[in-house]
């Protein structure tokens, strides 16, 4: 079986985080997705989601990075960059 690409792994892991944090086991993430598209994505769940991402991926997100994230695609790209660095 072909080895999963880093991007696929990130997508899968991130989707699991989103499903858990936003309490929706059917949630499917996509690059254009924003807070407007997800029920329960508010200030509290946003905080929980960021800290889950940091913990799961073993990274620290800086404010200058967070404020550039306009959608889920931007987050996936940032995680890709951090995991590839």
């Amino acid at each position: 079986m072909a080895k999963k690409s880093i991007t696929m792994e990130i997508n899968e892991t991130l989707q699991n985080i989103f499903r858990e944090v936003f309490n929706n086991p059917e949630l499917v993430i996509h690059p254009e997705m924003t807070a407007n598209d997800v029920a329960n994505w508010d200030s509290i769940t946003h905080l929980v989601m960021i800290s889950q991402v940091e913990e799961t991926f073993g990274i620290r997100l800086k404010l200058k990075e967070l404020i550039k994230l306009k959608n889920v695609g931007d987050l996936i790209q940032l995680l890709n960059e951090k995991k590839s660095a």
Binding site: H46, L47, I50, S51, K62, L63
Partner: peptide, 12 residues
């Protein structure tokens, strides 16, 4: 949205 900026700023 401003809440996202505010929340991210506090988080960091």
């Amino acid at each position: 949205p401003s809440w996202q900026l505010r929340t991210s700023a506090l988080f960091c």
